[in-house]
Each structure stands twice: as structure tokens, then as C-alpha cells.
């Protein structure tokens, strides 16, 4: 495990996210989905940063379907209607910021804003080339390709709110659980 991946895992755990270092992505997806059939929204297997290959999202979608889960893909006509009922959202990322355990996501065709936002659980697959030290490096990477994506987001652990007595409580609007498969 690289130093960056190690740091990412440590920081993600510190903000109540769950790192899976060196794990098989499909196995993690099946474990997170659980035994009872659920609806899983899985992004297209395009790489967020435009370079390199995908991270095997098609294969993960196949495994989830074989295990009896209902799988939603962005190209499905019923995506928007059914996303609200999804329990799990699976994405790649454009960059992973080691200093803060942050996923930098870029949205576009095949990579909707909702996959990492609406379901209760978010699973992201990070590959070695995605890892950078910190936010300025991540921003430089996504700005490098010329035109910025229509929307991007930094995701650091699960959704939380400090609005009641300033104590952070997890899972208010966004996902309550964030799992990240690291190289």
C-alpha cells in the first residue's frame, strides 16, 4: 500500500468513513449490499479524470445483479424515477485527496450527481493514479483538462450535521456510510 493510500485510509477512518485497502471491489460491493435484495445505482465505467481506464464498475454491476440485487445504470430510462429508492450508489472518482480522506468527483454523462448523494450508502473505487496529496493538487488535476465538468464535489466521509448542540451526527441528507476501496 502506497504512502498516499495509507494516509487516505487513516484520514477517511478519522471522519467515520470506511476504507477497504487492497480489497476486491466486487466483493466489497456484495458485502456492503448485504443478503437482502436492494436497489444499487452504479455509474458507467468511465474514468472521472478522462485518462486511464475504468475501475470495473460494469463488472461490479454484473456481480450485484447476479447476487439478486436490482441494478440501476445512468442510461436506464427509469434512473431518475428509481434513484430515490436506491440503497447503494457505486462510483469511481476523479481524484482522491490523501491529506483529508476526500473523494473528488466530477459529474457528467454516465456519472450523475445523484449516485453519490441520494442512496443511504456510497461506495467509491479509487485507483493508484487517483491519489494526490491535497485539495490544491486535486483542483489542479480537474482544471487541467480545459473545460471544467458541469458540477464537481468533494466528499469527505458521510453526511453529518452539527446543528443540534454542535455535536456531529452522521447521515442527515447525504449517505450515512461511505466505503472506499483503495489500491
Amino acid at each position: 500500500m502506497s504512502e498516499l493510500a495509507e494516509r487516505f485510509a487513516r484520514e477517511l477512518a478519522a471522519v467515520a468513513g470506511t476504507p477497504h485497502a487492497g480489497a476486491n471491489a466486487a466483493e466489497v460491493a456484495l458485502e456492503v449490499a448485504g443478503q437482502t435484495p436492494i436497489v444499487a445505482a452504479v455509474d458507467d465505467d468511465t474514468d472521472g479524470d478522462g485518462g486511464g481506464g475504468g475501475v470495473g464498475l460494469d463488472a461490479i454491476a454484473g456481480e450485484l445483479a447476479r447476487a439478486g440485487h436490482r441494478v440501476l445504470r445512468p442510461s436506464d430510462a427509469w434512473w431518475s424515477a428509481e434513484l430515490a429508492g436506491a440503497y447503494l450508489g457505486v462510483t469511481g472518482c476523479a481524484a482522491a485527496l490523501a491529506d483529508t480522506g476526500t473523494l473528488l468527483l466530477t459529474f457528467g454523462p454516465g456519472r450523475p450527481r445523484g449516485t453519490s448523494l441520494v442512496p443511504r450508502v456510497h461506495l467509491a473505487i479509487v485507483k493508484e493514479g487517483d491519489l494526490v496529496p491535497s485539495l490544491p493538487d486535486g483542483l489542479a488535476r480537474v482544471a487541467d483538462g480545459g473545460r471544467l465538468a458541469s458540477a464537481m464535489a468533494c466528499v469527505t466521509g458521510p453526511s453529518r450535521s452539527g446543528d443540534i448542540e454542535q455535536i456531529l451526527t452522521l447521515g442527515v441528507h447525504g449517505p450515512a456510510h461511505v466505503h472506499v476501496v483503495l489500491p
Binding site: 483529508t100 450523475p112 471544467l148 458540477a151 464535489a153 466528499v155 469527505t156 458521510p158 453526511s159 447525504g174
Partner: peptide
């Protein structure tokens, strides 16, 4: 006092061709 908030959104205009949300 967080290092980074749970979410930072960067918005660059309305949804584009081929996108299903936004």
C-alpha cells in the same frame, strides 16, 4: 474545526448534453 467539510460543491453551469440530473 474540520479539515474539510463533508461536502464542497463546485457548480459550473446547468446540466449538459447527455446528463441525467442537474
Amino acid at each position: 474545526g474540520q479539515k474539510l467539510s463533508s461536502y464542497v460543491s463546485f457548480l459550473n453551469g446547468p446540466r449538459r448534453e447527455g446528463e441525467v440530473d442537474g
